[in-house]
Design a protein around this nucleic acid. Structure first.
Lengths: 108, 108
DNA sequence: AAAAATATTCGTAAAATTACGAACAATTCA
DNA sequence: TGAATTGTTCGTAATTTTACGAATATTTTT
């Protein structure tokens, strides 16, 4: 086998991983995971970054499918996207489950 | 609580996630996870990218701690870094375990 | 010693990421 | 209606990422 393209699963894995590849976004998810929903303001309060930057990170998490938002004037309510969260959880579970680390020496 | 800095765990999570945030790097790990070790050439054969790019991705995975390399002239042998792999596995496990998705409605 | 094989490093270019303040839009409150 | 509140979008700048071919270094083979 040579020069294979990536599998759908690898592409989806990388997409979710990339979305989690920043401490601010990990912190946002940590915060959201512990409650049903919450407003932008509460999320921003937790983060050591400007409002505009927080909004940008939320957009990326939404784009990746990990969260969703709903406008409740004049606020915006965010929450985990349950369906995609479960998919990501399964993907990472299988990913980290595939290494037969216990049975081997690895390098050195 | 306001303007908190990120926790060590969030920073480590983001670091591992970022390393996995590219399909080539996910593919490399997928390939390495299935065997004790293998040489650069075999890894590169699997990937639809140039040699230099593959080497670069391997560097990033090594930098993040997920793999390690050993020179066996004139080849280079790579493998999963067992210790850090286990840490990453645990971090992602706790991360995805913390959402109480089943018990809630989320937005909408 | 010269040629071949194996990977990394260098130099470079295009695109994406991260961050901020200012400007804006939309709704609510006075 | 005017002022305040809440977030997003715009414009911008600095940095990082991704990718490639060419050059380089190291060891092995001839």
């Amino acid at each position: 086998m040579e020069k294979q393209e990536y599998t759908e699963i690898q592409i989806r894995m990388a997409r979710y991983a990339k979305a989690l590849g920043n401490p601010a976004r990990v912190a946002i998810i940590d915060f959201l995971a512990k409650q049903e929903t919450c407003f932008f303001g509460e999320i921003h309060e937790q983060l050591p970054i400007a409002k505009a930057t927080a909004s940008q990170h939320l957009s990326e998490l939404k784009e990746a499918g990990l969260i969703q938002g709903e406008i409740i004037p004049p606020k915006v309510k965010y929450c985990i996207n349950k369906e995609n969260w479960m998919e990501a959880k399964a993907l990472f579970g299988e990913f980290f489950g595939q290494c037969v680390c216990k049975n081997r020496q690895c390098c050195g």
